[in-house]
Every structure is written in C-alpha cells, then in structure tokens.
Design a protein around this nucleic acid. Structure first.
Lengths: 136, 136
DNA sequence: TTAGATGCAAAGTGTTTGCAGCCTG
DNA sequence: CAGGCTGCAAACACTTTGCATCTAA
C-alpha cells in the first residue's frame, strides 16, 4: 500500500483511501476493467464507495499519466496501468482484453507527417485462444 | 449513385434512398464522422430522415463489411469506408481524424500468440500539423 | 482552516429497442 | 403481397455535473 501512497504523493494528489484502493485494484488486476467493474468489485469491501468517486479518481489518475484509458469496444472506457509499451487484443466472444507485447518500428516514423505524436494505441480484435479451443 | 446501388445489391441489401445517401456521404467525405454528424448533414437535404434510420443503415453496412466503425475518442463511434489498410491519427485539439498510411510488418505475427485475428486497428493521438502551426 | 475530495441525485450524451406504417422486390 | 425498412418515442448504458458535506494537509 505504501507503493500507492508514494505514487499519489509524487503527483501532488491528496491521499484518500478511495484513490488508494482504485490504484491497487488496477495494479493487481490486469483485466482492463471498465469504471463500473472497478466500482462493483470494490463496493463489496467498501460499501460506502460511490461511483462518482471512482470516476473522479480515474480522471485524476489519468490526468497525471498514472493510468491510461483505452476505448476498444463500443461506448465504454477501460482502464489500465501501462507497464511498458504494449497493444491490446480484444476477444469478440468473451470480451476479455489481453496485452500484446509488440513493437512496431514503423510507428516512430509518424512525426514525419508533421503531426505531434502523444499517444500510440493499437488494438486487434478477434477470437482468443481459449474461446477457439471451446469451439464456436 | 449507380456505384452505391451496385454495392448494396452485391450484399443483398434492399436499395433505399436513405442507405444510398449514407453510403455516398461516407464515400465522398473522408472525415470519419459520428452517426450524429452524418445525420445532421444529411438532414439538411433530406428533412424526413430519422436518426434511427442512420443507425440502422450503419449497422447494416457494417455487418456486410462495407464500412467499419472505429472507436478512438471517448464514447462515440465513427464510421469509415476503408480504402486499403490504414491507421488513424486523432488530433486532441481540433478533433479531426486523418488517415495514416502505414504498414506494420510485426502485426502479422499476432496469430503466433494463438489468437484468431479478425481486425487490426491502430490509432495515434496528438496535435495535428495545422493546430501546431496555429500555436497553442 | 481551507482547498480539494466524497457521494448522492439529477442531467447529459450516444445508442438501441418497440412498434405501427411504408416501400422494395 | 411479404418481409424488410423507416421513423417516432421511449428506454438504455455510460459518464458528467451540481451541490452539500467531509477530510487531508
């Protein structure tokens, strides 16, 4: 937990128990959850937690670059602590998102077009190994 | 217009004036519009057009692979007639989306992970050339 | 002590659904 | 003529906002 206190301090964010548990949740679960998933899971052990606070925490953490929001399927945002450069694979069947460790050298050429690059996202959609095994 | 009739026929879709104008709009405007943008623009010359119909048309066209939906910023879907393989550059300032003609050879290695790849999307976020010129 | 965070409820935004009537094939 | 399509309104899902209360620093 010290770890998360440190992260918040480093970013001049006030330390609140809510922010800590959201941060911990994202760090310990690499499931790219939606805001609602985070809320429901944390609600169990923190009954007083409100959804607004989850959204507030996510916005704050995102602003400071601690977490990133990805938008991969439809109208919901998913959150992620970026551990190095990676892309995402989204399974159309089970909805799971797996990280894909991939480096695309060409992508660095982007700025040749004259645009200033700030974020690079890649996502691949398909059917994951597990769902393939289970058959369709 | 013949062109669009042909496309619909080829995909066993009934030819309706609404579908034709949506298709034409997407083909002639490479602006990756949202459903609402399409609706508002077409409404001017087609006052009886309803938003539901725009959504219906988009879903139908998407199902047949004629258009693709991309999800790049927040909670809105954008539509696109894919003219060959390309990625998208989203300007955080003006919201414009430009196509980026890029090929990433590594991405083909995806299936080595054992997942079945069906769609590959890439998006880059930043500030576009024009907005950079205008200064911040 | 005070700027900022929480949490409730209400409002927004983008999309989907139910259904009666219309039109393409 | 039949099944699919249109278009209205109402329902939905996810996110944001307003505001009174609370809390970390």
């Amino acid at each position: 937990m010290e770890k998360y206190v440190k992260i918040l301090k480093k970013n001049d964010l006030k330390i609140t128990s809510q922010r800590l548990i959201v941060l911990q949740y994202l760090d310990e679960n690499c499931i790219h959850p939606t805001a609602d998933q985070i809320y429901s899971d944390l609600k169990i052990n923190n009954p007083s937690l409100s959804k607004t606070t989850v959204y507030n925490a996510l916005v704050a953490l995102q602003k400071h670059g601690i977490i990133q929001a990805i938008t991969i399927s439809g109208s919901e945002l998913r959150y992620d602590i970026p551990h190095g450069m990676h892309h995402h694979f989204y399974c159309k069947k089970c909805g799971k998102i797996v990280d894909i460790d991939i480096s695309c050298p060409n992508i660095k050429k982007m700025s040749e077009f004259g645009h200033k690059v700030e974020e690079i996202h890649g996502y691949i959609k398909g059917i994951c190994k597990e769902c393939l095994k289970k058959g369709s």
